[in-house]
Simulated assay, not measured.
Amino acid sequence: MMSTANISPDMVANNITPAIPTHPGAILKDEIEYRGISQCRLAKDMGIAYSALNEILNERRPLTEKTALLFEAALGVNAEPLLKMQMRYNIQKVRKDSAFMEKLANVRRIAAVL
């Protein structure tokens, strides 16, 4: 039996980071298109502005806890996996920010000597 003690988390099959992160809005957009629901109707049913819904579905606005719960109520799509997807999306985007990653490396260097 092979030991997994020295295997990087990035090497585990179920832990692969996608090259392009998936925003939950892309999944929700596919879902409402598949169901034939208009964005205007869904926004009205959810009690949110059409522009807010459209920005989420077009990946220009993050999904919040409140909007995830509204999608859950309107579509029956579980809010928690959507929020986890948003968190993974956010983290992967931040990891591509070289200025922030440099700052993070500096903090790690300082913390290592404490």
Score class of each variant (00 low, 15 high):
2 M>S: 12
5 A>L: 13
107 V>R: 07
63 L>K: 03
5 A>G: 04
16 I>M: 03
34 Y>P: 02
68 A>L: 03
8 S>C: 11
54 N>D: 12
76 G>R: 00
99 A>G: 09
38 S>N: 14
83 L>P: 04
83 L>K: 10
25 G>R: 00
13 A>F: 06
95 R>K: 15
19 A>Y: 11
33 E>Y: 12
103 K>H: 07
95 R>L: 12
10 D>T: 13
104 L>G: 05
24 P>M: 00
84 K>R: 15
97 D>H: 05
25 G>T: 01
86 Q>P: 00
101 M>G: 09
61 R>V: 06
14 N>T: 09
98 S>W: 04
50 Y>S: 07
17 T>H: 04
94 V>N: 13
58 N>D: 07
5 A>Q: 14
27 I>H: 03
84 K>C: 08
79 A>F: 01
6 N>S: 11
24 P>Q: 02
20 I>P: 01
96 K>R: 13
112 A>H: 08
100 F>R: 10
25 G>A: 03
55 E>Q: 14
93 K>L: 10
76 G>Y: 00
48 I>C: 10
58 N>E: 03
114 L>W: 09
52 A>Q: 13
52 A>E: 10
17 T>P: 02
87 M>P: 04
45 D>G: 08
20 I>L: 07
14 N>S: 13
76 G>Q: 00
52 A>G: 08
26 A>W: 02
55 E>C: 08
64 T>V: 05
62 P>D: 12
8 S>N: 11
85 M>T: 06
111 A>P: 01
83 L>D: 02
103 K>T: 12
104 L>S: 14
54 N>G: 07
102 E>T: 12
81 P>Y: 01
92 Q>R: 05
45 D>N: 15
29 K>F: 06
33 E>V: 12
100 F>S: 07
81 P>G: 01
33 E>P: 04
55 E>P: 04
50 Y>Q: 11
59 E>D: 08
37 I>E: 06
109 R>I: 12
3 S>W: 08
1 M>Q: 14
40 C>F: 14
30 D>A: 15
67 T>A: 04
19 A>N: 10
99 A>Y: 06
39 Q>F: 06
17 T>W: 05
101 M>E: 14
36 G>H: 03
16 I>S: 01
105 A>H: 09
102 E>F: 13
34 Y>K: 15
39 Q>M: 13
70 L>P: 00
43 A>W: 02
87 M>I: 15
81 P>M: 01
109 R>W: 06
63 L>P: 00
36 G>M: 05
48 I>H: 03
9 P>H: 06
10 D>W: 07
39 Q>E: 14
5 A>D: 12
77 V>G: 04
1 M>R: 12
95 R>F: 06
16 I>C: 03
19 A>M: 13
86 Q>S: 01
51 S>A: 15
2 M>F: 10
87 M>A: 15
50 Y>D: 05
76 G>H: 00
80 E>I: 14
9 P>Y: 06
29 K>N: 11
94 V>P: 02
39 Q>L: 04
40 C>G: 12
34 Y>F: 11
100 F>G: 04
17 T>R: 14
67 T>I: 06
96 K>I: 03
101 M>V: 07
67 T>K: 02
112 A>I: 07
90 N>M: 09
59 E>P: 01
14 N>F: 08
54 N>V: 12
40 C>N: 14
48 I>G: 04
84 K>N: 13
69 L>E: 06
93 K>Y: 08
